[in-house]
Design a protein around this nucleic acid. Sequence first.
DNA 1: TTGCCAATCCGAAACGTTTTGGATAGAATG
DNA 2: CATTCTATCCAAAACGTTTCGGATTGGCAA
Lengths: 334, 334
Amino acid sequence: MSITIRDVAKAAGVSITTVSRALNGYSDVGEKTRRKVALVAQELNYRPNAVARSLVMNETKTIGLLVSELTRDRVGHFFMFRVMHGMHDRLAELGYDLILFSTTTARQRLVSYLDFCMQRRLDGVIVMGIRLDDPYIQEVVDSPLSSVVIDLPLQSERCGYVMTDNVYGVKLAVRHLFDRGHRTIGFVNGYSQAAVSRDRLRGYEEGLVQMGLPVDRTLMHEADFSLPGGGDGLQQLLQARPDLTAIAFASDLMAIGGLQRARELGIAVPERLAIVGFDDIELAEFSTPPLTTIRQKRLEMGMRAAEMVVATIKNQAAPHGILLAPELVVRGTT
Amino acid sequence: MSITIRDVAKAAGVSITTVSRALNGYSDVGEKTRRKVALVAQELNYRPNAVARSLVMNETKTIGLLVSELTRDRVGHFFMFRVMHGMHDRLAELGYDLILFSTTTARQRLVSYLDFCMQRRLDGVIVMGIRLDDPYIQEVVDSPLSSVVIDLPLQSERCGYVMTDNVYGVKLAVRHLFDRGHRTIGFVNGYSQAAVSRDRLRGYEEGLVQMGLPVDRTLMHEADFSLPGGGDGLQQLLQARPDLTAIAFASDLMAIGGLQRARELGIAVPERLAIVGFDDIELAEFSTPPLTTIRQKRLEMGMRAAEMVVATIKNQAAPHGILLAPELVVRGTT
DNA sequence: TTGCCAATCCGAAACGTTTTGGATAGAATG
DNA sequence: CATTCTATCCAAAACGTTTCGGATTGGCAA
């Protein structure tokens, strides 16, 4: 069917060893035969069989992207898609491919994620969107398989992480609101199963303390990262604390939900109530008014994860944990 | 390092042939040895090397997902992510994995998509988000590799397509607006390099004709599928034709952009101007007012694509082209 | 002449499976 | 008893690469 190294060898009148070494740039092959081999390979449109190579080299040059149940999460793509881009592009540059699988996939096959990776002989795995309470996550962290997890500070010999400095991020938001003159600042958080939620809450509290403001539970609300969730959060917070003049949200989508609800309630933003989001998703720029937010460098996040996983694979010295600095983007809601 | 079929054979006291046949459920192995082998395999936590299997079986059980330059497109995920879910989940059920690659990847490696697929020995490929003018797309259509393309009606011996019936979809929108009493209906289209744009335009025109309304170029505007593009479209259309009472958009994102712009311009929706979108993205439900739109069954789209590509791989009789019926979802903007 | 070295080349093993084409033994049949 | 059949099992080849350990040549020094 398809043409093999044997065909090239025959056509070029050399051994398959020589073809292999010529094409892979080894030094012990004469310039003349090298050119001959290259020419013949080109003419026959020879493509080395990656599967055969993987078998003998014991590396597949592919890394897995494990995301939590894809189907259930309806808004994760606002954050994840761009991170995926970063990963994919950088991995491609580094000569690796990205294979997608989800927690559901593994469950269907009745094997753990790790087994799945081992079976497919993946060189490494990147984990994203996994909850704190996932039963199998520890297994991949402890495994000899190179891995990096996004948004969870897990570390081990062969496992690193990359995440945004969420504490610092929300502190930025609080400080910004403080600078704008706000002294009663609410906070709408995401669900607590997400690791980032803890950090963002801590950033909020530490931010208040740093500004010399009192920390009060009636200023906080736990939502679910969804658009209507953000709206409800705003409404309930405002009901409990009518003296609120600003709210920080743990995600842009919630902030935009809050923005909409504010408009419905006839609350002027930013005049009566200031709002700041988190993430800087594509939509943030286009809300009315445009959303002030804390930008996560999603593309870079993906790239760093990619670099880290291949560095680990190659046993290169590299940091095993990266905290990306977010930045304040001031727009129209503050 | 990892444990092989040989280890299992030795431990169970049988040949590797028997282990293979026992584990794969062949009939010519005794019940007693079958149980013994299964037990030993379990105890040793044996996982067959998928790479070795692929080499000998000449199938990798993975299909590629080729998407156009990931990084450039900033809003494609609104549509694509859910389609990907559908693909991934159904493929997982069918025992296939999904490997991601983009037009940029191939260009970096200086090989065509097809070469990439052949090299990795992919069993099939699904193509999504490719423009009409892509130079390589014809190559994969004509290739012996099983393929299905999304949103482009390309067909060949081993290539099928799945797409929404866009003509019918926009007709639905026009008819709905007509039923609501509108007689001057504008249309904001996406960019013309997308195949769907042509169909949607045709649906608009045929819809008008069917309702006995005049077709007029001043009622149409070509935008770029983006949020601000939709806003601009609405504004320009309204400037040219102040008598407009309704606008159909070729995407939800553009419709939401139009919605925002209308609010900024003090135009009441739906009282003064009715708006209907296309896609039914997650946000549509949560705009203010909630967006009336034409729903594309994105999850099903992905699933059908998955089914079609494996049917083609297995040479099963199956339709080589699927037109999914969209449906009208009436909400608050009409 | 002999020995040695560098430059090229190649045969064969290895990677971990599946599968082909028997081999073996016991049971059933004539 | 000889023959055939059935139920189990297995040795070896095959998949398409990479790589180890030489083999071959020609040139050059001793």
